[in-house]
Each structure stands twice: as C-alpha cells, then as structure tokens.
C-alpha cells in the first residue's frame, strides 16, 4: 500500500484514502463545439501512457476530498511529488530535485 502526500492536508496518508483519477494536465476545451471530431476524439480518448515519469491525478476522497496532481514513476510506482490542481506541470529539474 502506497503512502501518498496530499498537498492540501500536507501529510502522507495511506493509499486506501485515495482514488486514482487518470492523467493530469488535460483540461476540458473551453468550447467543445468548435473542435473537429478528430480533436475531440484525441481529447477524450488518447492518453500518453509513458514508461517512467507520469503526470496523474489523484483524489483524497476519504480525506479532504480534493483532487490534486502527482508525478509518479510507472516503473517503480514511486511518487516524486504531488501538487495542487491548477498549478503548472513541474519542470524536469523540479522533479529531479523532488526525487533526491
């Protein structure tokens, strides 16, 4: 069972309090109506699925209830960092520093 740091509670909490919520930094288009079918399909269904660093969303559902973002390595399962939703995607340097 993983330990996950909730950026709102500012504490590491057991994984059972959380749910995974898909890839992060995919925002809903302001006006979906102007998108082509192809663009809409890409928005809806196409995800990066990387080996290694993955930006993803979690929700502290049985805690403060907040959705937040995380950087996790899909090979080791280890979290590098978590941050509040709405904040920009961390840079490689920031992730490296968080890992060390």
């Amino acid at each position: 069972m993983l330990l996950i740091r909730c950026p709102h509670c500012a504490a590491e909490r057991p994984e059972v309090e959380f749910v995974y919520a898909g890839e992060a930094h995919i925002s809903r288009p302001r006006d979906p109506a102007v998108l082509t079918d192809e663009q809409w399909k890409n928005h809806l269904f196409i995800r990066s699925n990387p080996r290694g660093t993955h930006f993803e969303r979690w929700r502290h559902i049985h805690g403060c209830g907040r959705f937040f973002n995380a950087v996790r390595d899909t090979v080791t399962d280890k979290f590098a960092m978590t941050y509040k939703a709405g904040l920009p995607r961390p840079s490689e340097a920031e992730i490296r520093e968080a890992r060390s």
Partner: peptide, 10 residues
C-alpha cells in the same frame, strides 16, 4: 479530527 477509512466505511 480527520476523515479516513475504517475497513470499507468512510
């Protein structure tokens, strides 16, 4: 005080 989980109950 905190919300958490107790077995399968929040």
């Amino acid at each position: 005080a905190t919300r958490t989980i107790f077995d399968k109950a929040q």
